[in-house]
């Protein structure tokens, strides 16, 4: 190959290497898809949601997160499983509070079973009444203790 041609091709290759990334390297292409997704709504007792708390979704058998982000303004996490099996959703706060929910997904992407955390807030009122019982019981124990302390000493 003549020296002049070699130089021309080298220069062309160099220009190509530099100019192509410069033109498209930062372009983010997108397309909008139709598809089925899983929506998990998260609530804590009392009706609040863990808004904007971080979460991670793990595909079956994977230790690297399939998806991560923050719970949205509706208190929901949305993701699209691409395989059947037990998918794990871990929601946690900066100081480590949180829960892990396992969703058993079938081949059609439907959820067959959910494990972990509490399914809903049906137990809220039972816990409220339990706490009322604790309050009254604690004061009752305090009263018994005071009366026990105040009893007269046994006669000699």
């Amino acid at each position: 190959m003549p020296q002049r041609l070699r130089r021309f091709l080298s220069a062309l290759a160099a220009i190509g290497c530099v100019s192509v990334p410069a033109a498209h390297g930062h372009a983010l292409l997108h397309e909008v898809l139709d598809g089925e997704v899983l929506i998990v709504r998260l609530t804590v007792a009392g009706g609040d949601s863990p808004w904007f708390e971080p979460y991670e979704v793990f595909a079956p058998g994977e230790e690297t997160a399939f998806q991560s982000g923050r719970v949205n303004a509706l208190g929901e996490v949305t993701f699209r499983p691409d395989r059947p099996g037990p998918w794990k959703l871990r929601v946690f706060s900066e100081d480590g509070h949180g829960a892990t929910i396992t969703l058993e997904v079938d081949t059609a992407g439907e959820v067959l079973a959910v494990q972990g955390a509490h399914g809903d807030a049906h137990g809220h009122w039972s816990r409220v009444f339990a706490a009322l019982g604790y309050i009254l019981g604690a004061f009752g124990l305090l009263m018994i203790w005071r009366q026990w302390r105040a009893r007269p000493p046994p006669a000699p």
């Binding site: 804590v44 007792a45 009392g46 609040d48 509070h97 809220h124 816990r127 409220v128 339990a130 706490a131 604790y134 309050i135």
Partner: peptide
């Protein structure tokens, strides 16, 4: 009790 039993607050 709100925090421990009911799960409200912390």
């Amino acid at each position: 009790l709100q925090a421990v039993v009911v799960g409200a607050g912390g």
